[in-house]
Simulated assay, not measured.
Amino acid sequence: MEFTIMEGHALASPAPQVLTIGKFDGVHLGHRAILNAARALVGPKERLAVMSFEPHPTYALTGNPEYARWLTPRRERVRIFTDLGVDAFYVARFDRAFQQLEPAAFVDGYLVPLRVRHVVVGPDFRFGRGGQGTVDVLRHLGQERGFDVTVVQPVEEHGHKVSSSRIREHLREGRVEAAQALLGRPYVISGEVVHGDKRGRTIGFPTANLGGIDAYVLPKAGVYAVFVEVEDAPDTCISHAFGVLNAGYRPTVDGRAFQLEVHLLDFDGDLYGKTLRVSFLRRIRDEVKFDGLEALKTQIARDCDAARALVGLPSAAQAERPRST
């Protein structure tokens, strides 16, 4: 897939394109409906393209720190769009100059060079200075510039619109299964394994500490059953495993910073420097301060058995039981 950051204007496209435009934060079921509608319009020798913006427009316009983080940072969106068969992904800098563009200037500077034949958006799409550009304005400009516009209605789940804001709310409350229902897949955070205090190893539950996660929306503090993929794993390393993840401040050891620490079930090895993709499956419990490491160790063992039961693995005691001959 072609990936381009657009600085001030778009470069000429090598082929006509069907383009979808939006924040695509989460690439949730509503976004996928837009992508599916666009894909159905792509003709021979045409490309399916996506245009998004950075930083998050809500953060750029309001300064709300919640939107300094993404459900799907750029690297994750590139991965998802590639899997979905998108041919080109464009990111426009949502800086002050971009925000001041008149609707016609946006179309002439960003859409016309891309040889857009058809634009597919949601009904709430706005563009141009002060959000002056509505869907009707886009249609009018498209008629003048030679492209059509299709509007895809929102996807609903249990009578409510599927939206990134709802997914963010579910994650704030630890409802990872509800977030998964709107995303159409488990919520994922990727991070590089970095060195921590190695306390988990001393109590028999070594953990991989994830670094580089500041760009992600983080879930509510607590313990979760997760599925872990090791990116670019060599032959000597596992490629995936189930695990138990603690998200939070580690109050039992007087932690101060919010961290993600994951213990991989049935694995003991070196993961330092490797990138883990962690899919959140189920929430097990709240984060609790225990009276010492022994109490913590006992609870982690229970958490592991709870995770094993959730994903259909035998308990630790069953796994260690010798087979009869």
Rank of each mutant, 00 (worst) to 15 (best):
H9I: 06
H9F: 12
A10G: 01
L11H: 14
L11V: 13
A12V: 14
A12R: 14
S13H: 09
P14L: 09
P14H: 13
A15M: 13
A15H: 14
A15S: 15
V18I: 03
V18F: 01
T20K: 06
I21F: 04
K23F: 11
F24T: 04
D25W: 02
D25H: 02
D25Y: 02
G26C: 09
G26N: 11
G26I: 01
V27L: 12
V27Q: 07
H28A: 11
H28Y: 08
L29W: 09
L29T: 10
G30E: 04
H31G: 06
R32M: 10
R32F: 00
R32V: 07
I34Y: 08
L35N: 00
L35Y: 01
N36Y: 05
N36L: 08
R39V: 05
R39C: 03
L41P: 01
V42W: 01
G43P: 04
G43W: 11
P44A: 15
P44Q: 13
P44R: 13
P44V: 12
E46R: 10
E46P: 00
A49E: 10
A49N: 05
M51Y: 00
M51N: 01
M51R: 02
F53D: 12
E54L: 14
H56I: 10
P57Q: 05
P57D: 06
P57E: 05
T58G: 03
Y59P: 06
L61Y: 07
L61D: 03
L61G: 04
T62S: 14
P65H: 10
P65W: 03
P65C: 10
E66F: 08
Y67P: 00
Y67N: 08
